[in-house]
Design a protein around this nucleic acid. Sequence first.
DNA 1: GGATGTGAAGTCGTTCACAGCT
DNA 2: AGCTGTGAACGACTTCACATCC
Lengths: 215, 215
Amino acid sequence: MKFSKVPEATIRRLSAYVRHLEVLEEKGEVVVSSASLAESCGVNAAQVRKDLAYFGEFGIRGVGYYIKDLSDNIKTILGLNREWHLAIIGIGNLGSSLLFYKDFFKKNYKIVAAFDVDPAGVVGRVSEKIGKPVEILHPEQLQEVARDRRIDIAIIATPASEAQKVADQIAQSSIRGILNFTPTQIQMPKGFAVKNYFFTTILDNVAYLLRWRVK
Amino acid sequence: MKFSKVPEATIRRLSAYVRHLEVLEEKGEVVVSSASLAESCGVNAAQVRKDLAYFGEFGIRGVGYYIKDLSDNIKTILGLNREWHLAIIGIGNLGSSLLFYKDFFKKNYKIVAAFDVDPAGVVGRVSEKIGKPVEILHPEQLQEVARDRRIDIAIIATPASEAQKVADQIAQSSIRGILNFTPTQIQMPKGFAVKNYFFTTILDNVAYLLRWRVK
DNA sequence: GGATGTGAAGTCGTTCACAGCT
DNA sequence: AGCTGTGAACGACTTCACATCC
């Protein structure tokens, strides 16, 4: 199986579906229709069925989808049934928040390393904040540590000006996934999964909508 | 002017362009071509020109775009030339990080209020963290405060289970923009600008790509 | 009967290719 | 000559509509 033609938007929606399915499961619901799931997630019913159809036939005609079953299937598709190892690179305000508030992450994501160019400068402040000692490594050690601790995904939380430098180091390591928090487009060779996540972009988007579209 | 047919993706890219233009400006560059801007932002050159064409003609044929000029124009389009008032609702881990690390935000976004259902319980912890007293209001006061402080955009940082409740209160206030940090699809009447920003969704996306697409 | 699964139609966004300006 | 601005071609995603199956 390769699923090479699945739209990115489908993947994002699958995350939403699985989250809503968990809510329904907690409520003790057993079956859900595409129409109902669609409404809860703010999409079209046909869209839900199409999204699922990329991966198989999970429903029963005339009935709907068994919630537990569908939930498990989507989790497998998304790879949420295994643990992913994260590294946070750049332990400034944002990085230390991520480190501190581990519950930002779902259970299957685990922070296994933290890097900063100034480990000594950072370690005291962060340890104090977290209430226990924290190990901060220098990015020089990235390649070695990435291999040893099997880091899957690097979260870049450095200043924007450092992002490409970090990206270059990641390119030479065993890491193949990047979540980029800096407002920079990083250049990577083929074969890497890179997503940007800069939230003032979204805020700009809301501002634009308010400026021109609303009312 | 209404710009009703502009793709959302265009708006996101405009944010990226303006950011890169600022970098070029700092370097002392004066003119940039669509090809060069496109490469830096990881998009197609025709895309850049199309994006700008929605809003006017900003370039000079045979030459390119004057950086300062283009930057100013995009900022005006996005509404970045005015101040936007933000409220943060839900002062847990995420909310207090946003409150604490104001430099997450660009200069034209200003936090003017913070709300939590348990102001008393929250205020001590947060004030200590920030190093000075912080005012935390009860959501009951939302409508009144929204009007008085001219809140433009509410950032929902409550637990997911509370998001819709908060959304309902926003719907009855003068606020028209929402940035939703909870992994929930909130239901709003027409006329609101709502964007979701839940980062484990993006992380799921990276994980999926690693699982199926990369090598 | 009722809800899924899916080809076909429709819509939206991107890329091409070149005319038009400087 | 060079780069923008843009109609037309293309491609991708979404929605429709209905045949299919429980």
